[in-house]
Simulated scan of single mutants.
Amino acid sequence: MSAELAPESEAELAEMVRAAAAAGEALSIRGGGTRGIGGAVAGRPLSLARIAGITLYEPGALTLVARAGTPLAEVEAVLAAEGQRLAFEPWDGRVVFGVAGVPTVGGVAAVNASGPRRIEAGAARDSMIGVRFVDGSGAVVKNGGRVMKNVTGLDLVKLLAGSHGTLGILTEVAFKVLPAAAETATLVFDGHDLATAGRAMRAALATPYGVSGAAHADGRTLLRVEGFPASVAHRGAALATALARFGAARIEPGPGPWAAIRDAGTLAGREGALWRISVKPTDGPGVAASLAPAEVVLDWAGGLVWALAPEAIDVRARLGVPGHATLVRASAAAKARWGVFAPEPAPVAALSDGLRARFDPRGILNPGLMAARVGVAA
């Protein structure tokens, strides 16, 4: 295998990509090595670890800009010192993949890594207000800006989020940030079945009490409220009263189990195929029930189903409702059999092919990573 490429600047990266494109050499793009979703990429390793550092932080403007290789922990520490945070609560792939890498800004953006607070604050892409990237021809592209008003032109910011490095290699990301919560509390209902949990979570989101997390795991239905201490105490009590028809709830102060919910921690380190399924929240409990004997966790009030299933189960065939299922972790044989990403409808596939042809005409950026079947050209 060729030696790993490790550019130290965007200009050096662009030069390397131009050389690879001219030679028809595929590139396997690596951030912190913590998010192993996708098929294997037979390409020369390219690390963004040296393109790092926070280039702009304006707490008063709620804006932070960082290079792609910047460790996420560094960004979170800088924000925490000013009482701020990335509102979308990025999930940490190290838990389910059992690796010890370093999550990076570019990796978060590339996979649109979003946690339980998505129901309130949106996904990672909703907090991204600008990007710089190098496309498959070696051209440097900039889209968006460093302020929150950005409504002109093609929204490449949203396009790059979740593209897994197949349309361009991110070099810099600008984020909108928000104040951190002074206090957190979790309402816990014990013993709900999936259908009851789904109704309780949806009812909670219909109240005016600012629920920032709604999940069901290990027989517990969990609802999170965040904010100033007096507000959290009032809203927590009011929410428990509003949901009294679902049983008695206890209120647990503190951060609660939300990191484990975010990272599917209860399903990590165990045999089986781990699926990440996105459906309408009203469909989530039924989908989860249809996957028996799989073990499931509901997040996003049922809109996200984490399922640990036997590898022989065709999870996509059991959905029965609109949605999509990604095979996050499984053996190579299971990935080859089911595919990591769901096949796209023909019109969407045509759009995807057109975008790849535009941004990566030689097909050198992570080829095969997002194929519906491992080994099938992306």
Rank of each mutant, 00 (worst) to 15 (best):
R118G: 10
R118E: 07
R118H: 11
I119G: 11
E120W: 09
E120L: 12
E120V: 09
E120T: 13
E120Y: 10
A121P: 09
A121T: 13
A121F: 14
G122F: 03
G122M: 04
G122V: 04
G122E: 02
G122N: 06
G122L: 03
G122A: 08
G122R: 09
A123W: 13
A123L: 14
A123K: 13
A124E: 13
R125W: 08
R125L: 04
R125E: 07
R125Q: 12
R125G: 09
D126H: 15
D126E: 11
D126M: 06
S127L: 10
S127H: 12
S127C: 10
S127M: 12
M128A: 15
M128F: 07
M128I: 15
M128V: 15
I129C: 05
I129K: 05
I129V: 10
I129T: 04
G130Q: 13
G130M: 14
V131Y: 05
V131L: 07
V131I: 14
V131R: 05
V131G: 07
R132Y: 06
R132W: 09
F133R: 05
F133M: 12
F133T: 08
F133H: 04
V134C: 03
V134Q: 03
V134P: 03
V134Y: 00
D135H: 03
D135P: 02
D135F: 00
S137G: 13
S137V: 10
S137N: 08
G138N: 05
G138H: 08
A139C: 05
V140E: 07
V140R: 14
V140W: 08
V141H: 08
V141T: 12
V141C: 11
K142Y: 04
K142H: 10
K142I: 11
K142D: 04
K142T: 12
N143V: 11
N143T: 13
N143G: 15
G144D: 04
G144Q: 02
G144E: 01
G145Q: 04
G145N: 04
G145F: 01
G145A: 06
R146K: 15
R146I: 09
R146T: 15
V147S: 07
M148K: 15
K149V: 14
K149L: 15
K149C: 14
N150D: 11
N150R: 11
V151T: 03
V151M: 03
V151W: 03
V151S: 05
T152R: 10
T152C: 05
T152E: 08
T152Q: 11
G153R: 11
G153D: 08
L154G: 12
L154R: 13
L154A: 15
L154C: 11
L154D: 12
L154I: 13
L154H: 13
L154W: 11
D155A: 13
D155T: 05
D155N: 15
L156Y: 06
L156R: 09
L156K: 10
V157Q: 10
V157A: 10
K158F: 07
K158C: 08
K158P: 02
L159V: 02
L159G: 02
L159Q: 02
L159I: 01
L160M: 06
L160R: 05
A161M: 00
A161W: 00
A161S: 09
G162F: 00
G162A: 00
G162H: 04
S163N: 06
S163F: 00
S163Y: 03
S163H: 00
S163G: 06
S163P: 01
S163T: 04
S163R: 02
S163I: 01
G165D: 05
G165T: 04
G165P: 06
G165Y: 01
G165K: 01
G165C: 02
